[in-house]
Amino acid sequence: MKDNSIYNEQIDRFLKGQMSTEEEQQFKTEIGQNPELKQQVREHLYLIRGIKQVKSQEEQKIILQEQHEQKVTPLRRNWIKITSIAASITFIMVLSGIEGSRLYYRHEIRQYAYNASVGVMSDFAASSRGTIDEETKVHLTDLFTNAQEGKDLAETIDELSRLYVLTKDEFVDIEDDCAYQIGWFLAVSYINDGDYEKALEIINNIESEYPDNEDIKSIQKQLVEFLK
């Protein structure tokens, strides 16, 4: 049985493309035959994914906040482009109906939704200054955070659904930006809850109002492919 530090080094060399073809093949074979190594690889991947998600979120916030404070360009365009930083890390197409691939693809959709939500949240923070009262802003921010993190999903979905219905009511005055974000995070909540049909239904509604939004189009495409 090898020392874990040797496994760590092998995993890192593989991930950085530093192994020869033969070494890679041997390593992949060993993973298939050695449950301990396989588990260590899984834990390694979780660490890397966690680091990428957290650091990506932090850095997007730095860039977005800087751009917002300088008022260089409208944030609505910026967050769409900036979420491509996160999207470039994760997007992959469904290849087969095998459960493992579907599981992986579900993960990709969730990760895309998580990363794209960073920009939506920043946009909301910027656009809601002075337009909605503080109590409502805090309530919405909490809801959006829960949606993004997949926390208290039942309550979050209930509340966002209620608010989403209100956004459709022409007699209720909800700012356009909030309406968009309420819809987006309701879709994200459904994604995190595993209800992809419902998520797609919401996304299709939003897409009809924002047909040029690249993130909406991207996640719509992923959901359509997944549900085929």
């Binding site: 593989f14 991930l15 950085k16 493309g17 690889v41 899984r42 470039s88 493992g100 992986y104």
Partner: peptide, 21 residues
């Protein structure tokens, strides 16, 4: 500079599966 290659990351993820156990 020795960045993690996204293609290698995906390859390993496909190999071991996404579930933690």
């Amino acid at each position: 500079f020795e960045p993690i290659r996204n293609d290698k990351l995906e390859e390993l993820e496909n190999l071991v599966g996404y579930e933690i156990a």
